[in-house]
C-alpha cells in the first residue's frame, strides 16, 4: 500500500506533465490523451506500482469536452488511482487500453457507442448494446431522441 503522496511522486516521476486534482477520496491524475497510453502502460508494468486491475472505465461529458476516467487498482499493493484524460468533444480519440487490460475491450466498446469516443487500435470497435443503425451518442448531454426518451 502506497500513500497518496508517494503515489503522486511516482506518477510525476514517470510523466512530469501530469496534473493532480486536490481532494477526493482517491488520487486523481490528469494526463494528455496522447500520453495516456504510455502512462497507463508504465503504471501497469512497474513492479512497485503494478496497477493490474482496471475496475472501472468510463467517460463523462462536460459539454465543453469529454473526460475519460480510468479507475485502477493493484491487487498486490492494494492502492488505487484514477487517471483522467480530457478529450476533444468534436473529435474524441484516445489509444485503446484493451491489450493492457483485457476487460477494457468490452468497456471501450460500450464507451464508444454511448459517447462516440474512438479508440485507436481497438481490435473490434463495434456497437455492443445498441443496434447497428443507431444514430447519435446517447449518454452525451445534448442527445435528443423524441421517441425513446422520457423527460422527468
Amino acid at each position: 500500500m502506497m500513500e497518496r503522496e508517494a503515489l503522486q511522486a511516482q506518477i510525476t516521476a514517470i510523466n512530469a506533465n501530469v496534473t493532480f486534482e486536490e481532494g477526493g477520496e482517491m488520487l486523481n491524475a490528469f494526463v494528455d490523451p496522447k500520453e495516456c497510453r504510455d502512462l497507463l502502460q508504465t503504471l501497469h508494468n512497474m513492479d512497485d506500482l503494478a496497477f493490474d486491475y482496471m475496475f472501472c472505465l468510463t467517460c463523462v461529458d462536460w459539454k465543453t469536452h469529454l473526460t475519460m476516467v480510468y479507475h485502477l487498482e493493484s491487487t498486490k499493493h492494494r492502492h488505487v488511482v484514477v487517471i483522467k484524460s480530457k478529450l476533444d468533444r468534436e473529435n474524441p480519440e484516445i489509444d485503446t487500453m484493451s491489450d493492457i487490460w483485457r476487460t477494457a475491450e468490452l468497456l471501450e466498446r460500450e464507451v464508444y457507442e454511448l459517447f462516440g469516443v474512438r479508440f485507436i487500435n481497438h481490435p473490434d470497435l463495434r456497437k455492443l448494446l445498441l443496434s447497428d443503425e443507431w444514430e447519435g451518442w446517447p449518454l452525451r448531454k445534448d442527445y435528443e431522441d423524441p421517441i425513446n426518451m422520457i423527460k422527468l
Binding site: C56, T58, V69, R102, T103, E105, E110
Partner: peptide, 27 residues
C-alpha cells in the same frame, strides 16, 4: 462500483455503475 459525478445540483451529473457481470462476461 457506483461512480457519481456531482455538480452540486439536485440530480447527479453523471452516474456510472461498474457491474460485475459485464466484466465476468468478457472472460
Amino acid at each position: 462500483g457506483v461512480y457519481i459525478v456531482s455538480e452540486g445540483g439536485l440530480t447527479p451529473y453523471r452516474i456510472k455503475f461498474r457491474s460485475p457481470g459485464f466484466s465476468n462476461l468478457s472472460a
